[in-house]
Design a protein around this nucleic acid. Structure first.
Lengths: 322, 322
DNA sequence: ACCCGACGTGTAAGCGCTTTCTGACACCAT
DNA sequence: ATGGTGTCAGAAAGCGCTTACACGTCGGGT
């Protein structure tokens, strides 16, 4: 047996006799032979791997994204190597390392917005960004934000709310900026001025602190459009503790449809995004760029669903579930 | 400039003059040069990458594990390639592929228990399993299960409960089996017989269906020890819908301390595991095996915390948080 | 003046695969 | 018999790095 034959067998080349194939296969099995992916990558000049860069992994959004990405990548026979920017780690170093071992890189919008990501996007490897600013010059895939935010805001207006506050930091992520844009558009459509956004982070403690400031009359509002559910849920819990009725005194809505949104009372009205598909499309777009099969579409926007529960003021069955 | 010099510069070898270093660095920058990780891997005979195999990614457990694993791996300058067994994908194929591109593989206990994982563990690459059966013959890292399950069960006894049911499938994951073991140990200690476990999956719909069966008098109980929080939370929600008071009529406890556990009412008494550390230790153990630095410790068990909220019958402040 | 070591740089031999090309062999048609 | 044709196996040339080693070129001791 020559090494060439072994290689042919392992890749199912038809030009091998059955006897040779059997001999190779049995030897492989007996010796627990594991080929070297590095040598193969070097020879075929493809890593057969995609990189995925996420800011973190708490909450369902990023998990679901990774899930979708990995699933589609696996179908395309691509490995996925993930890097998490979580904490204060050296993103620049991590990105540089990543680029040496993958054919292409998908990253979140909030990562792409960072300084050191620029060099990656300028580099030779294909890049697609998920939920990012379409103006970035690279292929972008994102969920619809503006018009669902507008619809959600308008929904609160329709409930008779007049004093709406947007809670979340538009500079933290492009998605949030677009949601704020929709929030403002709804105000414009009604000819009302939109209050400045309350710029706080996504952590639960930030939501609690915000409620305390609100009740200290530092803000006034009868409706809260929160940039995500984690915030919305922590806000609702704190409001309940402080004796404020939701939605009676204050309506609350969010984004993401986390599990908790179904279990709090009242249920949280929120926006569900096709995150799994977002991930899958990212893997696919990346693969298309790598194989050169398709010229990159600049930007793809996926529709979202508003899921109405009780927190916006709608009457809903107690503890409604999906 | 020769390629050897370039290589030396890029790896910070001290035997390079400053002028040469500068020249190389500026050229690298100008050309957006990205070295080939494959070629390096081939030359140094190390992939500098770890594999992590997870069954899925919903809920905080796996996410947190990946978070910890990736963080520690990054510190050790290792990339991480993840494969998710989610759905009906060809695990065998995926594992085989994975083995060709990493130095070692970490996998969940539920993966390790599968048929096709055996060949990976028999193969030449180091393997560590997280939350798996220590009897597997490979290095194992897991959170304490038996004694916390026993303590939790005993806690319900102390609340005067007598009719306890363990809800979850002990054959689904080694962790669940061990929790059941602790549940039984607590019964033995009190000289009571333990009821057979209610073998259902982790999905929320399974919890709902179980409650309906329970209320149809197919089971009787005044306390439920659920194998994880997702189950516990869905059970509690369904009980509330059906007008059963928790903890008055029925106490409920779970595992994992998911976000929802803090926000439901009453708060869910549960067990918090050091999942992040579990992941970090897995990465570390793997790296130790790969570098041959340390002979593998057979099994490492991390302590867990019981977090008491209201669902067990303890009086707790309304909506307690961490 | 010389030699010797230290220091930088270049040369070249792999690392373990893939793949093209060449060759061996068998088989059919002439 | 001979030549042509088709099938399968092997030889060998890389793929782009790392690194042992060889080779200057200095500076300082003698």
């Amino acid at each position: 047996m020559s090494i060439a034959t072994v290689s042919r067998v392992l890749h199912g080349s038809p030009a091998v006799s059955d006897t040779a194939r059997d001999k190779v296969l049995s030897a492989v099995d007996r010796l627990d032979y594991v080929p070297s992916g590095a040598a193969r990558s070097l020879a075929v000049r493809q890593f057969e791997a995609h990189g995925l860069v996420l800011p973190e992994l708490r909450g369902p959004y990023y998990s679901e994204l990774l899930l979708g990405f990995e699933a589609r990548a696996a179908e395309l026979e691509q490995s996925v190597v993930v890097v998490l920017a979580d904490g204060n780690r050296d993103l620049d170093h991590a990105l540089r390392r990543l680029a040496t071992r993958v054919d292409g890189i998908a990253m979140l919008g909030s990562i792409a917005a960072q300084e050191c990501a620029a060099r990656t996007m300028r580099g030779p490897k294909p890049v697609v960004v998920v939920g990012g600013d379409p103006a970035l010059g690279v292929e972008t895939i994102c969920a619809e934000n503006v018009s669902s935010a507008q619809a959600l805001t308008e929904h609160l207006f329709a409930h008779g709310r007049t004093d709406l506050l947007f809670v979340g930091d538009p500079d933290g992520a492009p998605d949030v900026r677009l949601r704020l844009e929709g929030f403002r558009a709804a105000h414009r459509a009604r000819g009302r001025p939109a209050a400045d956004p309350v710029r706080i982070q996504f952590r639960e403690s930030d939501g609690v602190a915000f409620v305390d400031r609100l009740l200290a009359r530092r803000h006034t509002a009868d409706g809260l459009v929160c940039a995500n559910d984690e915030l919305a849920v922590s806000v609702m819990a704190r409001l309940a503790e402080r004796g404020v009725d939701v939605p009676g005194d204050l309506a609350v809505v969010g984004w993401d449809d986390v599990m908790t949104a179904r279990y709090v009372s009242p249920g949280l009205t929120t926006v569900r995004q096709p995150v799994h598909r977002l991930g899958a499309l990212a893997a696919e777009a990346l693969h298309a760029q790598v194989t050169g099969a398709r010229q990159r579409t600049r930007c793809r926007v996926l529709p979202t669903d508003i899921v109405i529960r009780g927190s916006c003021g709608c009457t809903a069955p107690p503890l409604p579930r999906k």
